[in-house]
Design a protein around this nucleic acid. Structure first.
Length: 504
RNA sequence: GGGGCUGUAGCUCAGUGGUAGAGCAUCUGCCUUUUAAGCAGAGGGUCGUAGGUUCGAUCCCUACCAGCCUCACCA
C-alpha cells in the first residue's frame, strides 16, 4: 500500500467520498485548488443594495458553499464570504457541463460565481449564475448548522456546532460555522485599533520592549523560563512591560505605550490565560489623578467605537461608561460595604472585622493583605458600573509612589467594572532609594517563600538614579476590556487559540 | 489541587447487562425559482482509553485521558 492509499484507508466515508469527487473534478478538467478569482462585491452588500425596480446587476463573488438544495436540473446554494451569505441559483440550461461539475461540489467548497442579481419567488435576493468556478475543494466535512428565521425575525439554530473543546481546538471551524464568533473577534480588533488611534492622536509613541528578559518584573506573578543557547543563559518571558517602559521615560520620551503579550505561569480560568494582551502607558509630568481622566476618556471612546454606545450589555448588567465614574478610596469602599469605619483600625482589629464578615484571614497576613482580602470579598464582586478604587496600602504596590498626604498608602487606582479589575495605574515611584528599599522588602518576602514577590532589578534602579520625571503609568488588560465590549463571559471567547492541554 | 457534570455516527443528542438508535449531513432515484426544500430507498460506529466483575459490558466497578462548571490558588 502506498502513502496515498494508506491515507485513504484512514478516512471516514464522508471524506473518502469527497476525495473521489476531487478526482472526478480533475478528470473533468477543473483545478480543485485554483489560483484566484476576480471578486467585485461582497455578499451582504449585494443583498443590502438590491432594488427590485433597477436593471439586473452583474456581480462576481467568492466564498464557501454553506448549504445546497438540488432539484434535478436546477439548484440553490448559499455562498458565505467574509461579510455574510448570499443565495446562488444554478440552472443546467445556463451552465451545461459545469452544472454536472457542480453536482460534485459540497458544503465547504470554495467557489467563485459570476451572474446577475434577482429576487426569487419566495423573496430572497439571489445570484443567477452565468459562470461558476471551483476555487478550493474541501475534503473534510464541516458541521452543518441550519437556521430558520420566522416572521418575527427570530432565529432558531438547528444542530449547532457547540462542543467547546472542538470549537477551541478547531477554531477555524468555529469561525466558519458560528458567525457570532467572528463578530466577537472583529470587536477585539476594533478595541485595539481604537486604543492605538486614541493614544497616537495624543502624541504618545508606540514602542516595543523585550519579551525575553534576563530578569522579570513589573508585576507579582510567576514567569515562564526559557533558555538561550548561544548565551547559555536562562531568560524569562515577560510578566509585564513596566520596567522597560519606565527606562524609556528616563531616556527622555514623554509618553510611551506598548500593546503586547505578557506571560504568567499560573492557573487558567475564565478570566486568565497564560498569555494575554496588555496595554501599558507611561506619561511624564502627570500623576494618577490625571490618569483617571484619561482612562475615562479612553474607555468611553472604545465603547463608542466598538458598540456605538457608551452603554454596554454584560450578561444581565448594563454598564454605562459615560464619564465621570465613581471614585472612592479603597478604605472607604470597604467601610461602605462593611458598615464600619476602618480609619485608625489596627491589624488585629482588621482581622477581627474580617472574621465577622466571613473573610478568611491567617496570621501570616499583614495589614495590606487583610485589606486586600476584605476588598476582594466584600467590595469588588459588587462593583458593576465602572469605579475607580484609589489609594492602596504601600505593601501591595512596590512600584507606586507614596501618597502625598496619606501615610502608609500609595497613589494608585484600579478600575473595577462588572466585578473585575480592568485597569491598574499609579503615580510611578521615581525615588531610587525608596524603590531600592521596596525591592528589598520584596526580596525578604521571596526569601520567606513568596514565589511571586519581585526580584531586584539593579539596572532599573540605576536608571532611576539618573532621574525619572514624575510619571503616571497605566496597564489595561486588552482581553478583559474586549470581554466587556463584546459581551463574552470567558477570556477563551476573545482569544482565538486559548491554551488547552495537548490533544492526545 | 478539591468537588460536580460530560465523553455513543461528520454535527447535535437519545438509549440498553444479551446483534447499537434519532434528526441533520452523506449516497441512489424523482424534481428547472427552492430555502431547516420535499418524497422513496441505502450506507455509515473500537459507544474516550486501559484494566476488573460477569457466561456475556457501550451500560456496573477502578484507574487514566480530555472537556466544561465550581471552589482554592493567582492579578
Amino acid at each position: 500500500m502506498n502513502e496515498h492509499e494508506e491515507y485513504l484507508q484512514e478516512q471516514n466515508d464522508l471524506t473518502k467520498r469527497r476525495l473521489e469527487e476531487l478526482e472526478e473534478l480533475k478528470a473533468k478538467g477543473a483545478n480543485p485548488y485554483a489560483y484566484g478569482f476576480e471578486v467585485d462585491r461582497y455578499s451582504s452588500d449585494i443583498v443590502k443594495s438590491f432594488k427590485d425596480d433597477s436593471p439586473a446587476e452583474e456581480v462576481s463573488v467568492a466564498g464557501r458553499i454553506m448549504s445546497v438544495r438540488r432539484m434535478g436540473k436546477a439548484s440553490f446554494c448559499h455562498l458565505q464570504d467574509s461579510k455574510g451569505r448570499i443565495q446562488v441559483y444554478l440552472k443546467r440550461d445556463d451552465l451545461g457541463e459545469v452544472y454536472d461539475m457542480f453536482k460534485l461540489m459540497d458544503i465547504g467548497d470554495f467557489i467563485g460565481v459570476n451572474g446577475f442579481v434577482f429576487r426569487t419567488r419566495t423573496g430572497e435576493v439571489s445570484i443567477h449564475t452565468k459562470r461558476l468556478e471551483l476555487l478550493t475543494k474541501s475534503v473534510r466535512p464541516l458541521p452543518i448548522v441550519k437556521e430558520k428565521t420566522d416572521e418575527q425575525g427570530n432565529k432558531t439554530i438547528y444542530d449547532p456546532f457547540s462542543d467547546k473543546e472542538l470549537r477551541y481546538r478547531q477554531r477555524y471551524v468555529d469561525l466558519v460555522v458560528n458567525p457570532e464568533v467572528r463578530s466577537a473577534f472583529e470587536k477585539r480588533a476594533r478595541v485595539v485599533s481604537t486604543v492605538r488611534r486614541f493614544l497616537d492622536e495624543k502624541g504618545y509613541l508606540e514602542v516595543e520592549t523585550p519579551v525575553l528578559q534576563p530578569l522579570y518584573g513589573g508585576a507579582s506573578a510567576r514567569p515562564f523560563v526559557t533558555h538561550h543557547n548561544a548565551l547559555d543563559v536562562d531568560l524569562y518571558l515577560r510578566i509585564s512591560d513596566e520596567l522597560y517602559l519606565k527606562r524609556l521615560i528616563v531616556g527622555g520620551f514623554e509618553g510611551v505605550y506598548e500593546i503586547g503579550k505578557d506571560f504568567r505561569n499560573e492557573g487558567m480560568d475564565k478570566s486568565h490565560n497564560p498569555e494575554f494582551s496588555m496595554l501599558e502607558l507611561y506619561v511624564a509630568f502627570k500623576d494618577y489623578n490625571w490618569m483617571m481622566n484619561l482612562v475615562e476618556e479612553l474607555v468611553h471612546s472604545v465603547s463608542m467605537n466598538v458598540t456605538g454606545s457608551p452603554k454596554v450589555k454584560a450578561g444581565d448588567n448594563e454598564i454605562d461608561f459615560t464619564p465621570p465614574w465613581k471614585r472612592i478610596t479603597m478604605l472607604d469602599s470597604i467601610t461602605e460595604a462593611a458598615g464600619e469605619d476602618l480609619a485608625g483600625k489596627s491589624e488585629v482589629e482588621l482581622a477581627a472585622l474580617a472574621k465577622k464578615h466571613h473573610v478568611e484571614v491567617d496570621p501570616s497576613m499583614g495589614y495590606g493583605k487583610i485589606i486586600d482580602a476584605l476588598f476582594s470579598e466584600l467590595v469588588e464582586p459588587n462593583l458593576i458600573q465602572p469605579t475607580f478604587i484609589t489609594d492602596y496600602p504601600v505593601e501591595m504596590s512596590p512600584l507606586a509612589k507614596r501618597h502625598r498626604s496619606k501615610l502608609g498608602l500609595v497613589e494608585r487606582f484600579e478600575l473595577i467594572c462588572n466585578g473585575h479589575e480592568l485597569a491598574n495605574a499609579f503615580s510611578e515611584l521615581n525615588d531610587p532609594l525608596d524603590q531600592r528599599s521596596r525591592f528589598e522588602d520584596q526580596a525578604r518576602l521571596r526569601a520567606r517563600g513568596d514565589e511571586e514577590a519581585m526580584v531586584i532589578d539593579e539596572d532599573f534602579l540605576r536608571a532611576l538614579e539618573y532621574g525619572m520625571p514624575p510619571t503616571a503609568g497605566l496597564g489595561i488588560g486588552i482581553d478583559r476590556l474586549t470581554m466587556i465590549m463584546a459581551n463574552q463571559p470567558s477570556i477563551r471567547d476573545v482569544i482565538f487559540f486559548p491554551q488547552m492541554k495537548p490533544e492526545k
